[in-house]
Design a protein around this nucleic acid. Sequence first.
DNA 1: ATTATTATCCGTATAAATACGGATGCTTAA
DNA 2: TTAAGCATCCGTATTTATACGGATAATAAT
Lengths: 210, 210
Amino acid sequence: MKTIKLVIADDHELFRNGLKELLRKYNDIDVVGCVSDGIEFIEYYKNNQDIDIVLLDISMPNMNGFEVLDQIKDLTPSVKPIIISMHDEGNYIAKCARMGAYSYLLKNTDQDELIKVVRVVSKGKKHFSPKISEKMIDYMSDSTISENVLSKKETEVLELISKGNTTKEIASMLYVSARTIETHRSNILKKLNVKNTAELIIKAVKMKLI
Amino acid sequence: MKTIKLVIADDHELFRNGLKELLRKYNDIDVVGCVSDGIEFIEYYKNNQDIDIVLLDISMPNMNGFEVLDQIKDLTPSVKPIIISMHDEGNYIAKCARMGAYSYLLKNTDQDELIKVVRVVSKGKKHFSPKISEKMIDYMSDSTISENVLSKKETEVLELISKGNTTKEIASMLYVSARTIETHRSNILKKLNVKNTAELIIKAVKMKLI
DNA sequence: ATTATTATCCGTATAAATACGGATGCTTAA
DNA sequence: TTAAGCATCCGTATTTATACGGATAATAAT
């Protein structure tokens, strides 16, 4: 039986090493690499392309999981990314699915499930658990929290708002009139379906825009 | 040599089991229990009080790390809690230190550091790394983000603001005049040293009030 | 090449938030 | 018990935010 060559990419050393120990027990799985961020993984991959699966964390320094997915999207299915994250927010899941992830596991997944998924994915099949799929669907159906609802300018304005800047301040920062920013503001509120700044910031936090 | 009896409390099964595997290598450390939330830990502790150390995650369902610290604060030093968290925010660290934690480790701590800390703590010595201490000091020195800056009423009002309610709505909810809420608002802004709602919500999020 | 979207700008008007300053009765801690 | 802090209330004025409606030039998409 061919072993499954697997790389772990996670910035939490204890998690990374613990996982490696866990996987040691399985004869059909061979942890050929352990890296602590996206850049290290890309570097590793350049030198060693014979990888079946990468267990990829989302939040890592230097280069996060999304960026890695973006970099390797043309390489799949030679290397099949399984996201392993603690975030169960629909937007993360949806983004990963769209970006070519083969599965999305939470860090509280049980061991058997992990092994099962690794084996399934190694055969080139994608697998998303019902719970994860549900989160994604919930997210998709909330049309207000979907990507690209805000234009680039609007996103820029929202970021400035969420740093505490007033309309006037933003206007002078972006070299436009305050009226323009006011229009942006009102469009942003409409698009995100909120009625005031407080709700806006709350939603922006949820959307991980802040 | 007496072995160090240790319990792991973390809701991430992979992390929990991985850690357990990691610690298996060390003869002086004996992982006598693995639980997935605070309630389970308290339950475990009731039946088995012969524990030296609990590696305690902060964010867990049912009962989180803070609540556990609160419950067992009178039991230390019989059981010495080491917080093991992914959050490096000063408020978390400060809160844990105040609540009797013996150490605060990030999940990206390296293995040697973990072992070192476990051994030191098992002897009854508290240990906070320079990096962690620094975070805590930074936090402490920001006097605006310290507990009890807001009165109960102000906290209540802030919570309602951060759910998107307007002054009027809050007023009718709390059966007081809108002026009262306005005063509260302005006092909250002063106390938290922010100048508008956007900043207020951001700060409230940071303070984990939301 | 035409359409749709976006970024930009403007006016008017109302609603809400913020800044001051001042006051009273209640509770709690020194 | 007295002082301090808190929750409550009020007025006035200014600044921001929001709502509506309308417009144009640039760019992207079909």
